[in-house]
Write a protein that binds this DNA or RNA. Structure first.
Length: 882
RNA sequence: GCCCCUGUGGCGGAAUUGGUAGACGCGCUCGACUCAAAAUCGAGUUUCGCAAGAAGUGCCCGUUCGAGUCGGGCCAGGGGCACCA
């Protein structure tokens, strides 16, 4: 009998060393066992492990350990998504080198992960910032280039005109640069793109087969790819007299010379390429084009007001959210577009909400049935006709202040009247195709993947610009193109571009003077193939296809929902592209995906009262606002509330929100591991909240986990191998629990598995000593092994069992013990519960009905009313309708 | 603005997918042990009600013998929106 407490401080390190010594978690790709690749999204080495990482990696760890216990050869690796902006920010703020900063963070975080006892194969560790990783990435990029999947084109970036640098979206705050505070402009740069749109159809179709992905993620990707069918055709453009052009509805300041008349015949203005969802073609009342559409550019060339308007559209950020929430602005070009059916002249506007990247950059506006068009038409007093109505009789019903997007029949549209929207679509396309004036066209919301970043800390794009040869790929034998170490972050802009020597090289084609490409790759490229590198790490090529074939696809991928679209879509694309050029066989990298929730925590703060005066108010009035935030370490939290440890002041308790430094509600994993041990922390991560939902961190919760660790430890101490006697009820509970926990772990329903283990623990504690009880105690150690591995190892050894519990087999289940012989039957009257009775399992419907009708409480409820119907659900309930 | 998700006791949640709502844990209350505390053990804990009973899964309406679960309409909170990772 063991009576002392379980001491994680000594057990944790002892067992971690034992696992390392025995190389338990190194994957053997040549073993004959079925293979299982369990992968969690690798972390960005930001400094320290975050509690969210702990949750993510604990889930993967339980699955990996469980798989090993059920006879699988498990690959469970870890690496570092080591390129990215924070390293450059640290360089600018603290004067440290991004590489040094990143590598120091990796060392810290690796030690933290080790202290949590994760069953990781560290022999396959990789960091994307090392040349032995990104060099292979450069080779893959060149392979895609040779396959025609890489190209250059002009694209917009956020430009900070003061710092003379490109800004990431997160560096743009309220339309201003985060450092300079200067209004951000949109500027065009030549950039590198990957042809993900070539794979749009494949990526969409592939989603249908990813049955073990959350529906939510599949739907988000489907919407992102955004397939839609419409109509592409040309308008004939009609140029008015010079005086009519450019009435300048847009709010344009300053003075301008009168516009120049257009060249004869319209020239560039009469180009094809208008895209519209088909059925609305007859009700179009105006045409809107993107500010960078060639027609708009043509107008601007001759009309200074138009040019100014286009300039104005370039202010502000590049994100969809900003574009769509900004005020809808337009500029009337004065040009008319001739309607293909009615011949009506539609005004052509330059509009700030039309995107050049989507469709053809021009739309026929349908103000009645698109909110953006509605707002625009209202602002510029354009007609808003109804084209879709509930019925033909409803054709002239006015709009209630907003667009109507519902389904219905077409009205006010000539030969389409009365048709369903889908039918009308087909009819319009057929007519225009018949007349040779247009064609049905599939358009995609998905755009090509821009991978250029004007930054230092990323994979150099392996190309050389030569004045005579143009853009030339770096020959394979000169890879990797290694980042220079001596860089300066004190001046703004891209350090690679400013480096005195790095970019000056000879052209590989003509030996003349050339310049290296100074853009680096988007870090999403790094994370698009790391799972392939985990399967094998040859020095001379990115991966060994035979090893990839053995391990891929990843059996279970686990990570945050925030990656639902970009990372996961890019990784799917990259994998398909490599399959397309014959480098690998597998097309979908992740067979099953799980997206876990965040870890949240309360916030603690004091408030203060300030005097405020709102717009249009004359009086100041008092208002309570947040004064100061306090971190959990500074706070004494009890059931009564929260007080400040320093002076006992009462604090306000705020909402449970995602842990973040700015809210000061962060809990450091190291601190809690030091206090409670790895197992209690792991147990907390798995308990209570379903893994896909948010997990609220609480001091009381981790205390409870700590107590359970000790409670199990005491129970393990009661293991008596010599005990005799059978406890059938306990045997049943024992085997039912093993089966249920296995099922729950496989479904990643860890919170349910935890509840089952609690139940079995309570049952064993209450049972009298017997062989059954000892067997159940031994099984509890095995059930705990994936979740609380240090405690389980310690107990396993104390119980005199051979070897490591990490390498033991999952307990076998006797199916005969899974079924109960008695069941509880609910007795209902009109669906309301009146009593419950026990009956033999599998009792006949007649027996159950007789049992119910003979029940006193049920009879009292029926109170002599005529029984109309009796519904019997075998083994569950009897419902009397009376 | 657009797309997506979530809502059940004081709290986290469970409910064999249309069949006994609240398993399990936290917290709290009472009791045992203790000089006392901690730890541990036992009992209780949706609300109203002495009870019988009634109400109850964000709100409203519907389908059904029966709705947390299905349908329609709202409300609230959260995530994503292409250079944060």
């Amino acid at each position: 009998m063991t009576t002392e407490r379980f001491d994680p401080a000594s057990a944790d390190t002892r067992w971690q060393a034992a696992w390392d010594e025995a190389r338990v978690f190194e994957a053997d790709s040549d073993s004959g066992k079925p293979k299982s690749f369990v992968l969690e999204m690798f972390p960005y080495p930001s400094g320290r492990i975050h509690i969210g990482h702990v949750r993510n990696y604990t889930m993967g760890d339980v699955l990996a350990r469980y798989k090993r216990m059920t006879g699988h050869e498990v690959l469970h690796p870890m690496g570092w998504d080591a390129f990215g902006m924070p390293a450059e920010n640290a360089a600018m703020e603290k004067g440290v080198h991004p590489g040094g900063w990143t590598r120091a963070n990796i060392a810290t975080m690796k030690a933290q992960l080790k202290r949590l006892g994760f069953a990781l194969d560290w022999s396959r560790e990789l960091a994307t910032c090392e040349p032995d990783y990104y060099g292979h990435e450069q080779a893959l990029f060149l392979a895609l280039y040779e396959a025609g999947l890489v190209y250059r084109k002009e694209s917009e970036v956020n430009w900070d005109p003061v710092d003379m640098t490109v800004l990431a979206n997160e560096q743009v705050i309220d339309g201003k640069g985060w450092r300079s505070g200067a209004p951000v402009e949109r500027r065009k740069l030549a950039q590198w793109f990957l042809k993900i749109t070539d794979f749009a159809e494949e990526l969409l179709e592939g989603l249908g087969k990813l049955e073990d992905w959350p529906d939510k993620v599949r739907l988000m990707q489907e919407n992102w790819i955004g397939k839609s069918t419409g109509l592409e055709f040309s308008f004939e453009l009609i140029h008015p007299s010079p005086s009519g052009e450019g009435t300048g509805v847009g709010p344009v300041g300053g003075t301008c010379p009168p516009p120049t008349p257009p060249p004869d015949g319209g020239g560039v203005l009469n180009r094809p390429g208008y895209y519209t969802p088909a059925p609305q073609v007859l009700c179009a009342r105006f045409v809107a084009i993107a500010p960078d559409h060639p027609v708009a550019q043509g107008v601007a060339a001759r009309n200074c007001d138009a040019a100014k308007f286009i300039e104005q559209c370039k202010r502000g950020g590049t994100t969809a959210a900003e574009l769509e929430t900004a005020e809808k602005l337009g500029f009337d070009t004065g040009i008319g577009a001739k309607h293909p059916f009615t011949g009506a002249h539609l005004p052509v506007f330059i509009a700030n909400f039309v995107l050049m990247d989507y469709g053809t950059g021009a739309i026929m506006a349908v103000p009645g049935h698109d909110q953006r068009d509605f707002e625009f038409a209202t602002k510029y007093r354009l007609p808003i006709p109804r084209v879709v109505a509930a019925s033909v009789a409803d054709a002239d019903r006015p709009f209630a202040g907003e667009a109507e997007s519902g389904d219905g029949v077409i009205v006010n549209s000539n030969f389409l009247d009365g048709m369903a929207v889908e039918d009308a679509k087909r009819e319009v396309i057929a007519r225009l195709e018949g007349e040779g004036r247009g064609r049905g066209k599939t358009v995609w919301r998905l755009r090509d993947w821009g991978v250029s970043r004007q930054r230092y800390w990323g994979t150099p794009i392996p190309f050389i610009h030569c004045q005579t040869c143009g853009v030339v790929p770096v020959p394979r034998d000169r890879l990797p193109v290694v980042l220079p170490e001596d860089v300066d972050f004190q001046t703004p802009g891209n350090p690679l571009d400013r480096h005195p020597t790095w970019k000056h090289v000879d052209c590989p084609a003509c030996d003349g003077k050339g310049q290296r490409e100074t853009d680096t790759l988007d870090t999403f490229v790094d994370s698009s193939w790391y799972f392939l590198r985990f399967a094998s790490q040859p020095a001379d090529r990115p991966f060994d296809p035979a090893e990839v074939a053995k391990w891929l696809p990843v059996e279970q991928y686990i990570g945050g929902i925030e990656h639902a679209i970009l990372h996961l879509l890019y990784a799917r694309f990259w994998t398909r592209a490599l399959a397309h050029i014959g480098m690998i066989e597998v097309k979908e990298p992740f067979a099953s995906l799980f997206t876990q929730g965040m870890v949240t925590h309360e916030t603690y703060y004091t408030t203060k009262v300030v005097e405020v005066r709102g717009e249009g108010e004359t009086e100041f009035r008092p208002m309570t606002v947040l004064d100061q935030l306090y971190s959990p370490a500074e706070v004494n939290r009890s059931a009564e509330g929260a007080t400040l440890i320093a002076d006992g002041r009462a604090l306000e308790i705020g909402a449970k929100i995602k842990m973040s430094k700015s809210k000061k509600n962060v809990v450091d994993p190291d601190t809690i591991v030091a206090r409670y041990g790895a197992d209690a922390v792991r147990w907390f991560m798995l308990s209570d909240s379903p893994p896909e939902r948010d997990l609220p961190w609480s001091e009381a919760g981790i205390e409870g986990c700590w107590r359970f660790v000790q409670r199990l430890w005491r129970l393990f101490g009661q293991y008596e191998p010599a005990a005799r006697g059978v406890d059938q009820a306990l045997d049943r509970k024992h085997h039912q629990t093993v089966a249920a926990v296995a099922q729950d772990i496989e479904a990643l329903a860890f919170n349910k598995a935890v509840a089952r283990i609690y139940e079995l623990t309570s049952a064993v504690e209450k049972a009298a000593p017997s062989a059954s009880r000892s067997a159940a105690i031994r099984t509890l150690a095995l059930l705990a092994a994936p979740m609380m591995p240090h405690l389980a190892e310690e107990a396993w050894t104390r119980m005199g069992q051979q070897g490591l519990v990490s390498q033991a087999n999952w307990p076998a289940v006797n199916p005969a013990l899974l079924v109960e012989d008695e069941v509880t039957i609910a007795l209902q009257h009109m669906g309301k519960l009146r009593d419950t009775v026990t009956a033999p399992k599998g009792a006949s419907k007649d027996d159950l009905e007789a049992l119910a009708l003979g029940n006193e409480k049920l009879q009292r409820s029926i109170a002599g009313a005529a029984v109309k119907k009796v519904i019997v659900v075998p083994d569950r309930l009897v419902n009397v309708v009376a």
